[in-house]
Amino acid sequence: MSNPTDKNDQDVIDFGFQQIPKQEKEHRVAGVFHSVADKYDVMNDLMSFGIHRLWKKATVDLCSIRKGQKILDLAGGTGDLTAKFSRLVGEQGRVILADINDSMLKVGRSKLRDKGLINNIDYVQANAEALPFADNYFDCITISFGLRNVTDKQKALASMHRVLKPGGRLLVLEFSKPQHALLNKAYDLYSFHVLPVMGKVIANDADSYRYLAESIRMHPDQEKLRQMMLNAGFNDVKYYNMTGGIVALHRGFKF
């Protein structure tokens, strides 16, 4: 006979530091990103002091993208990585900017069209847990600062593995666990006291940026995420700590 406590544990999930019914998380996360979409890029620059651009450049460099390839920029938001991929794959390649949130996709589409990037980019509203693409389709998948918001991360990683070609690679860029005690303490102070104030002043939304800080703390650390990728079928999984482990870039291959 099953234990009622076990069943309850299976039916709830974290939303920041809260425990909520699992079926509510997607809706709650959607509300966060609908709220911040218009100010998302501005806040990224301010809260990371512009360093997010270096993290994303490192991600692109490790993708080893070539002309003509098919790339999935998952949870791609406002399209920072898609813009870089579009130029790298050229006219014969294809980049799909996918996000579960239509507000973020609209901002991304508008920004990329303003840059004149229209010929090799498609836009798809998609849930990472059930990607609407054929098996063995993409040469490379990236998910940048999006995995922590997914309800079932293990299911999403398996879905990514399915749509990658043999020889393809997945890169996960995500906030992680700082590797030094003093940095970790300073990061906590910044995250829980400064970020919500910035969110209130810039985006008129302190709660969403409080959730951001909490969701980072609830996300699997470097080694745990590496193991999750291995469990999903990826091989040769390695991670690279950046800015003292505030962010980690994981890369795995489908053999």
Rank of each mutant, 00 (worst) to 15 (best):
residue 200 K to R: 13
residue 165 K to T: 03
residue 236 D to H: 08
residue 52 H to S: 10
residue 88 L to G: 06
residue 236 D to C: 07
residue 38 D to A: 15
residue 224 K to L: 10
residue 171 L to T: 00
residue 177 K to Q: 13
residue 249 L to Y: 03
residue 106 K to G: 10
residue 244 G to Q: 11
residue 34 H to T: 06
residue 125 Q to R: 12
residue 223 E to L: 11
residue 198 M to V: 05
residue 40 Y to N: 05
residue 148 R to T: 05
residue 226 R to Y: 09
residue 75 A to C: 13
residue 182 L to G: 10
residue 166 P to T: 10
residue 7 K to F: 15
residue 66 R to E: 12
residue 240 Y to H: 15
residue 81 L to K: 03
residue 207 D to P: 07
residue 193 H to L: 07
residue 29 V to N: 03
residue 160 M to K: 00
residue 29 V to P: 03
residue 19 Q to T: 14
residue 108 G to R: 05
residue 169 R to C: 04
residue 1 M to N: 14
residue 173 L to D: 05
residue 178 P to N: 07
residue 5 T to D: 14
residue 252 G to K: 00
residue 182 L to D: 12
residue 19 Q to D: 13
residue 6 D to A: 15
residue 187 Y to D: 05
residue 226 R to D: 06
residue 142 T to S: 06
residue 216 I to N: 05
residue 142 T to Y: 02
residue 187 Y to I: 08
residue 185 K to M: 12
residue 220 P to C: 10
residue 238 K to V: 13
residue 74 L to E: 02
residue 224 K to F: 13
residue 12 V to H: 12
residue 6 D to E: 15
residue 128 A to E: 03
residue 9 D to A: 15
residue 181 A to R: 14
residue 101 N to E: 08
residue 8 N to D: 14
residue 239 Y to I: 10
residue 67 K to S: 14
residue 63 C to F: 07
residue 82 T to D: 02
residue 154 Q to V: 06
residue 111 K to I: 13
residue 9 D to P: 11
residue 196 P to W: 01
residue 241 N to G: 10
residue 244 G to M: 08
residue 141 I to E: 00
residue 133 F to E: 00
residue 45 D to I: 06
residue 243 T to Y: 08
residue 199 G to Q: 01
residue 217 R to Q: 13
residue 69 Q to M: 10
residue 169 R to F: 00
residue 116 G to I: 05
residue 173 L to C: 07
residue 229 M to P: 00
residue 127 N to E: 08
residue 69 Q to R: 04
residue 29 V to Y: 04
